[in-house]
């Protein structure tokens, strides 16, 4: 099949970018979306045009490195990561618009690559349980009820891809922050730092320049790991609790 691609190209963070149009004609429906871009890049290279930069690493939907805005949807039309999207989700003759995540907290590095360092800094601000190596009690010392463990797990499946931010009309990272706060806040091990964690993570989130959440719900629909909106409710609940406790 044949597709027409409109792709954002931007040489580096400082330059202005623009959309460019490319045609790819020998697309097989079994190709992944990124393999289709690989094919285009091979061709550009042969023609002496610099290949399009885009991020990916594991290509199996778990590392969170990939992420493109495809036809206006984060990770494209399926609920999965960009690397797990396949060309059979498109039709012959389709025109596909490809852009990087747009958020000022995720500056474009080049073409379709963005810098998601803000997420690491949010984790640094409190997304952990403080325990030094070797200081841990036996793993069975504290039982964790299965439902709590499962809930913590559901939230912990976040892969830090940033699709929630990309999809949110407010450019908010509340789903990401909520997922971490819920993961650690559900577990008995995470209680001691619960108040402090939520306050400083939200503080860092705002400081990074992400927008505020107005509960629109695009984030959860774009999330390849289907993190539910519960985690934002949970984030708010924990924040109010922390403020009540005077944190």
């Amino acid at each position: 099949m044949k597709v027409t691609l409109k792709i954002w190209r931007q040489p580096d963070a400082a330059s202005k970018g623009a959309m460019h149009t490319y045609e790819v004609d020998d697309v097989s429906p079994d190709m992944s979306f990124l393999e289709m871009l690989d094919v285009l890049n091979e061709r550009l290279n042969a023609q002496g045009e610099e290949p399009i930069a885009f991020d990916s690493d594991c290509r199996e939907g778990i590392c969170g490195m990939c992420g493109l805005m495809i036809n206006g949807q984060a990770h494209g039309p399926e609920v999965t990561t960009t690397c797990q999207l396949h060309m059979r989700s498109f039709k012959d003759g389709d025109e596909i618009t490809i852009e990087p995540w747009r958020a000022d907290a995720f500056p474009v590095v080049k073409d379709l690559c963005v810098d998601r360092g803000a997420f690491d800094r949010i984790i640094q601000s409190g997304g952990y349980i403080s325990v030094n190596t070797g200081a841990a009690p036996d793993a069975h010392a504290v039982p964790v009820p299965k439902d709590k463990a499962d809930r913590a797990f559901d939230a912990a499946t976040c892969i830090s891809c940033g699709a929630c931010v990309a999809a949110c009309p407010n450019g908010s990272a509340s789903l990401f922050v909520g997922a971490k706060v819920t993961h650690l806040g559900e577990l008995p091990q995470g209680q001691a730092e619960r108040d402090r964690r939520v306050v400083s993570m939200i503080g860092q989130h705002d400081h990074e320049g992400f927008g505020g959440c107005t509960n629109i719900g695009e984030c959860t629909a774009a999330c390849p790991k289907e993190i539910p909106l519960d985690v934002i409710s949970r984030l708010n609940w924990d924040l109010h609790a922390a403020l009540r406790h005077g944190k």
């Binding site: 952990y128 349980i129 325990v131 793993a139 039982p143 009820p145 299965k146 463990a149 912990a156 091990q189």
Partner: peptide, 16 residues
């Protein structure tokens, strides 16, 4: 032990 203390959500049985 270390991982559980860090909050790694290993699979658990109903008894916790």
């Amino acid at each position: 032990d270390q991982c559980v203390a860090q909050g790694v959500p290993f699979a658990r049985e109903y008894g916790g």
